[in-house]
Amino acid sequence: MISIENLYKRFGKNQVLKGIDLEIEEGGIFAVLGPNGSGKTTLIKSILGMVVPNSGSIKLNGKAVKNDWKYRNNIDYLPQIANFPGNLSVKELIRMIKDLRAHKTTGDKELIELFRLEPFLDKKLSNLSGGTKQKVNLVLTFMFDSPLIILDEPTTGLDPISHIRLKQLIQREKDKGKTILITSHIMSFVEEIADEIVFLLEGKIYFKGDIPALKTKTGQPDFEHAIASILTSSYDKDIKV
């Protein structure tokens, strides 16, 4: 599905991605993890074409994404921060995003029901709370039926019920055979839904595999401690240097 070769990206003096090689197969939930500043968002934005890599290649289904924009018809993306034009209503925003996409079949009605957004449809976006905005954000992402879904911190600001619904939604999309890429800092959420972990450390892939393999590698009995042990060993290294 996605194949990334030797990807480098630098922002000014800050080398964020230092040669990423990554192969993501079709179908399943992949969690991209790593400490702050490890390059998770940069990696995701490179796949989406929002960040232009310094070198290396990204291919989606065998086709290079560079200088192309039509391929984004096959990706649904949930950005980290939800902020929309304040004077449009929720309805108008949904219509606008639909307008921009080639696939017109959408499941927005069902999603609006799922997240109980009906009372907000005619409200201006500037009057919505952070959590409600995040729900609108989720509707915008999941209403299209694309084979690749990228979620950047999807749980931010959600109440427990919406959180559960989101998990069900992700599971349902996975069952349709879709590929889902998630970043999150909430380890219990990741442990519950992820099939595979991609762990980024200092701009490189430190680990790729499923959760049992990660536990074996770190010698830790549970997932949260396994992640913590990677992080502490990397912090220790920093201190020694």
Binding site: M50, I81, I97, L100, R101
Partner: peptide
Amino acid sequence: NSKEFTELLLAQPVKR
């Protein structure tokens, strides 16, 4: 003001 929304638009199939 529309920076975050622009990011969302950039992920849509639209030319920059």
